[in-house]
């Protein structure tokens, strides 16, 4: 058993051991960005609805609503900026993993399957993160 573990680690210069945590980490980061952006869209929509109701309220209440929406817009911009900065390196990780799945010397076919599954998750989440909208819905 000890021998097998040591052989496995030497294969592909330990690529799977290095790549798997990275795939997990950046899939999770993208997922968090997508989830936060969705929540911000919901919050903004609620703020728009409340704004409609506060039209009849005090000017202090209107200022508060404006401030709230400005804050939400800024938070969304930060998420978009984060995704934009992560994307080039994630693409590079994606292509390295893809080429290793295609051609690489790996410890077993199961490792190839594991990499493929994790790569699919990363690509799905990257596609979702690229679709984060910069505009907000209005209560209309």
């Amino acid at each position: 058993m000890t021998t097998r573990t040591s052989t496995k680690k030497s294969v592909g210069n330990g690529f799977v051991e290095h790549a798997t945590p990275l795939l997990r980490e950046y899939t999770a980061k993208l997922e968090e960005s997508v989830r936060n952006a969705d929540e911000l869209h919901d919050l903004y929509y609620l703020a728009e609805l409340e704004n409609g109701e506060s039209e009849r309220g005090s000017s202090a209440s209107k200022r508060l609503q404006d401030e709230r929406r400005r804050s939400i817009r800024e938070r969304l911009a930060r998420i978009q900026s984060r995704v934009k900065k992560l994307t080039p390196a994630i693409n590079q990780l994606d292509r390295q993993v893809s080429q290793m799945i295609e051609h690489g010397e790996l410890g077993s076919e199961l490792e190839r399957v594991e990499l493929k599954l994790r790569l699919n998750e990363l690509e799905d989440m990257l596609a979702a993160a690229r679709k984060i909208k910069s505009s907000f819905p209005t209560a209309g």
């Binding site: 590079q92 292509r95 080429q99 290793m100 051609h103 690489g104 010397e105 790996l106």
Partner: peptide, 12 residues
């Protein structure tokens, strides 16, 4: 071959 060394390939 993309972002991979031929030395990392199974065929090598």
């Amino acid at each position: 071959l993309g972002d991979v060394s031929y030395k990392d390939s199974a065929l090598y």
